[in-house]
């Protein structure tokens, strides 16, 4: 089994998937490293696939005129980064900026989708997991939008 397989087989995201399914996913992955300050991807560039952060901190930023980069969320070890690869126009909608040296697994989005077309059961398992991640992120954003700590008057 590959090093990527060994790294992801115990990850909670893949809990409940078969070893064969995880092996297919692992085959699309490669280990990558980023140093502090590096930009993993920029808003508007091609969204090639998700990244699983193994260590380090990554900030999702939006550049705003007059204010520079504004952090909207930080991700950490164990978090998946990116879902824009799932849907057209397959372009990232924010910058991903490394706040502390990071190790990650970069997955090949087109190969994951091709494998899911060939094996719909695998596709369903992956979609269940990515949509749950989306729902959780949406929930967090809703709480941020509510500004619950602001002064009530």
């Amino acid at each position: 089994m590959s090093e990527v397989f060994d790294l992801i087989v115990g990850h909670p995201f893949f809990a409940g998937m078969t070893h064969d399914q995880i092996k297919i996913v692992a085959e699309t992955g490669e280990l990558v490293s980023y140093h502090e300050g590096q930009t993993i991807f920029s808003e508007g560039t091609d969204a090639v696939g998700p990244l699983l952060i193994l260590s380090g901190d990554v900030a999702l930023e939006l550049q705003t005129p007059g204010h520079g980069p504004q952090v909207i969320l930080t991700l950490h070890s164990g978090d998946f980064l990116g879902w824009s690869w799932l849907y057209p126009p397959y372009r990232w909608t924010y910058d991903a900026h490394v706040h502390s040296n990071a190790e990650a697994i970069r997955f090949d989005g087109p190969r994951l989708k091709e494998a899911s077309e060939v094996d719909p059961a695998l596709g369903y398992e992956l979609m269940k997991r990515f949509t749950e991640m989306l729902v959780n992120r949406m929930q967090s954003i809703r709480i941020q939008l509510l500004d619950v700590y602001s002064t009530p008057r």
């Binding site: 520079g68 930080t74 706040h99 700590y149």
Partner: peptide, 19 residues
């Protein structure tokens, strides 16, 4: 510790406390 909204110098986590 996390904050809902960072600033220019904050290098810590940004996101809700449940994260």
């Amino acid at each position: 510790i996390t904050v809902d909204h960072g600033d220019k110098v904050w290098r810590g986590p940004v996101g809700v406390v449940t994260s």
